[in-house]
Simulated assay, not measured.
Amino acid sequence: MTRRTDAHPDLTRPDAAAPFFSTWRVGTPERQRATVEAIAGTWERRPWPADGLLGYHVYTGRDGATLMHYSQWTSEAGYEAFFKTRRQERVDEIDTLVPGIERLGLDRYGRPRSRERAAGDTRVPGLIVTVRIDFEPDAAGRRADWIGEVLRALAGDPAGHRGLIAAHFHLSKDGTHVLNYAEWESERAYDAVLAAPGEGIGDGGEQWERVRTYPGVKGFTGTRYQHAVGLLPG
Results as ranks from 00 to 15, higher is better:
122 T>R: 14
137 P>R: 00
118 A>P: 04
101 I>D: 04
90 R>M: 15
126 G>C: 01
85 T>P: 04
69 H>S: 15
80 E>H: 10
115 R>V: 10
72 Q>M: 13
107 D>G: 13
88 Q>Y: 08
69 H>N: 15
65 A>S: 04
116 E>R: 14
133 I>Q: 08
121 D>Y: 01
128 I>F: 07
80 E>P: 06
100 G>E: 01
133 I>P: 03
120 G>H: 00
79 Y>S: 10
117 R>S: 12
71 S>W: 02
91 V>M: 11
98 V>D: 00
129 V>D: 05
67 L>A: 02
109 Y>H: 05
80 E>I: 09
136 E>A: 15
93 E>A: 15
97 L>I: 09
79 Y>K: 11
137 P>M: 00
100 G>T: 03
111 R>Y: 12
92 D>M: 12
114 S>L: 05
113 R>H: 10
99 P>S: 06
65 A>G: 04
114 S>I: 06
119 A>W: 05
67 L>C: 00
122 T>G: 12
84 K>W: 08
78 G>L: 03
100 G>R: 05
97 L>V: 08
98 V>K: 01
73 W>Q: 04
97 L>N: 04
73 W>L: 05
120 G>F: 01
80 E>D: 13
79 Y>D: 10
67 L>T: 01
99 P>M: 03
86 R>A: 15
72 Q>F: 04
113 R>W: 08
77 A>F: 08
81 A>H: 08
129 V>P: 05
124 V>C: 06
71 S>D: 11
73 W>R: 02
82 F>Q: 05
113 R>F: 08
112 P>E: 03
95 D>A: 14
137 P>N: 00
71 S>R: 03
95 D>W: 14
90 R>C: 14
88 Q>L: 15
71 S>M: 06
135 F>E: 00
134 D>L: 10
68 M>D: 06
102 E>C: 08
70 Y>E: 13
84 K>F: 08
72 Q>R: 11
76 E>N: 10
117 R>P: 03
80 E>L: 14
85 T>Y: 09
